[in-house]
Simulated scan of single mutants.
Amino acid sequence: MKSLSQKTLYLFLACLVFVFSACKEDEPTTPDYKKLMLGNYEGTYLKGILGEFPAIVTIEANGSEYNFKQFFNDSDSTVTFRLRVKDETSTGLVLEVPQQSFAAGGTVEGVFLDANANRPIQGFFLHKSDGQIINEVNLAIRRSNGERYDFRIRRLQ
Rank of each mutant, 00 (worst) to 15 (best):
Q99W: 06
T89L: 03
P28S: 10
G106V: 15
V79H: 01
F125C: 09
F18C: 03
Y41F: 07
Q99D: 05
G146L: 13
E136F: 07
F72D: 11
K34Y: 11
F20R: 02
N73M: 15
S64P: 07
S21I: 09
K128T: 13
V137L: 02
L50T: 15
F53C: 05
G131I: 15
R142Q: 10
G51Q: 10
E109G: 00
L16S: 05
T30L: 05
E136Q: 05
R119S: 14
G92P: 04
R148V: 15
Y10V: 13
N145S: 12
S101F: 12
D32Y: 07
C15D: 10
F68N: 03
G63H: 13
E96Y: 15
G48A: 13
A117F: 05
E96G: 02
V108Q: 01
F102G: 00
D87V: 12
N118D: 06
T107E: 05
N138L: 11
D114S: 03
A115G: 00
A55W: 08
S21L: 08
R148P: 04
V57G: 00
E109I: 05
L38V: 14
N116H: 12
P54S: 06
R143S: 07
F72P: 08
V108D: 01
N118A: 02
N138E: 10
F124D: 05
L9T: 07
K128M: 04
P120K: 01
F102D: 00
E147N: 06
E147C: 04
G110S: 03
E42R: 02
A55I: 09
I153A: 00
Y45C: 10
G92Y: 13
V111Y: 08
L9E: 06
L9K: 09
I56D: 04
I133T: 10
Y45K: 15
K86F: 12
R142V: 15
L83E: 04
Y33D: 04
A61F: 09
K47H: 11
L46Q: 06
R142Y: 10
R143V: 08
P120T: 07
L50S: 11
R148F: 11
N40Q: 05
F102Q: 00
V79D: 00
S64N: 09
Y41E: 01
F124A: 03
L95A: 03
P120M: 01
Q70P: 04
I56C: 02
G110M: 07
D87W: 14
R84W: 09
E65Y: 12
V137T: 07
K69I: 13
L113N: 00
E27A: 10
F124V: 13
